[in-house]
Amino acid sequence: MSRNPRKNTSPRATIDDVAAEAGVSIATVSRVLNGITHKASAKTQQHVLDVVARLDYRPVHAGRALRTMRSALVALFVPDTSNMFYATIADAIASHLKDSGSSMILCNTRDEPAIQDRFLEEMESHLVNGIVLLGAVDSPGLRQAVANRLPVIFLNRRPPAGVDAPYIGVDNPLAGREVAEHFLERRWIPAGAIHGPLTSSASRGRYQSFRTQLARAGVKLEKRFVQPADLTIASGYQAAVDMLSERPYPRAIFCGNDLIAYGLYWRCCELKIRVPSELAIFGFDDNPLNEWLAPWLDTVRVPYEDYGAAVARALSLLSESPRRRIPREVILPHRLVIRR
């Protein structure tokens, strides 16, 4: 049984109810809740807070948001809510924002500029305290939001050319080079690659540096051993169907993310190609499920939890002073995960 019947049987308490119950003015209640301590005694303040708790009163923040032109809401834009990579980072960010008293709104852009722009316009009207773009696409609305000095932070994909805003993420080109060096050390030649959309700075950085590092060692990727794909299992599978349509097969394939790698693995199973003894698969992200479901997959691990802390810190700096110069680039550590 609930200790407070109001929660189940009565309308939500208002500031008028609190003032009447506490025997003080509405202005006194407002000042206490806003942390203005010099207008009431410590005893009165505690009495008001006790009544607030007893009535389960929850202040409406619209007035405060209008005064400060900022609310306690943070919008996180992701291109695919079904992707475990984005979901895990979203969870880490939400956890850290909760500790700072903020709440998160999740917006699924589906990687489409028009949808992203609609959400940007909507979030600006909500006076959000920050917009975190986990996989942004270039769009007119995005450039306008930055021009309007909205507190925008880019994650995973860098800001488009000409857009000055903070970036938080791993060094994708460095990771791609390290994967290439691993291929060379293992003598996994011929090599292949199923890369993500090259419009994404993350996918482009990984693939191009991988290809360049191999070329420096005198290893050229054959045209038929390079396939594009969306960052999904189905697209990875179709790319694998095209790449593995005839022998000989590559000795190893670098995939733009782990979901692409899953699709490739499924096609290998259909063709009875043994992984990794006949064909090694290398992914990117280190999906949290890999440890349980993909012991065959080598990959690049990104620090999911670090994203949450870095975003919370950047938003805190921006809220202190929107014009303050915060670090334009925060590079998080990555590492190669070799499971065999």
Results as ranks from 00 to 15, higher is better:
residue 110 R to W: 06
residue 243 M to V: 04
residue 120 L to P: 04
residue 236 G to E: 00
residue 100 S to G: 07
residue 212 T to Y: 14
residue 217 A to H: 14
residue 80 D to I: 05
residue 133 L to P: 03
residue 326 I to G: 10
residue 318 L to E: 05
residue 97 L to G: 08
residue 75 A to Q: 11
residue 327 P to V: 15
residue 230 D to L: 06
residue 96 H to V: 13
residue 101 G to R: 12
residue 243 M to D: 01
residue 277 S to K: 15
residue 141 G to A: 05
residue 251 R to N: 03
residue 301 R to C: 08
residue 309 A to W: 09
residue 319 S to H: 14
residue 226 V to D: 04
residue 125 S to I: 13
residue 177 R to P: 07
residue 308 G to F: 11
residue 135 G to M: 02
residue 238 Q to S: 01
residue 58 R to C: 09
residue 6 R to Q: 11
residue 84 M to V: 14
residue 252 A to Q: 04
residue 198 L to W: 04
residue 220 K to S: 09
residue 69 M to E: 11
residue 190 P to M: 07
residue 244 L to E: 02
residue 18 V to M: 07
residue 63 G to L: 13
residue 267 R to H: 06
residue 79 P to F: 01
residue 114 A to Q: 13
residue 249 Y to L: 04
residue 203 S to C: 15
residue 3 R to T: 09
residue 41 S to Y: 00
residue 240 A to N: 06
residue 228 P to G: 02
residue 186 R to W: 02
residue 316 S to I: 11
residue 233 I to D: 00
residue 238 Q to M: 00
residue 251 R to M: 05
residue 85 F to Y: 10
residue 34 N to G: 02
residue 163 V to G: 04
residue 21 E to P: 06
residue 223 K to W: 08
residue 122 E to H: 14
residue 182 H to Q: 11
residue 276 P to T: 00
residue 178 E to R: 13
residue 304 Y to M: 11
residue 137 V to A: 03
residue 172 N to W: 02
residue 232 T to L: 00
residue 153 I to E: 04
residue 185 E to H: 14
residue 156 N to E: 09
residue 207 Y to H: 11
residue 47 H to A: 07
residue 133 L to C: 11
residue 127 L to A: 11
residue 218 G to A: 06
residue 37 T to W: 08
residue 314 A to V: 15
residue 85 F to L: 03
residue 271 L to H: 10
residue 248 P to L: 02
residue 77 F to A: 05
residue 248 P to T: 02
residue 120 L to M: 12
residue 263 G to T: 01
residue 255 C to G: 03
residue 146 V to G: 01
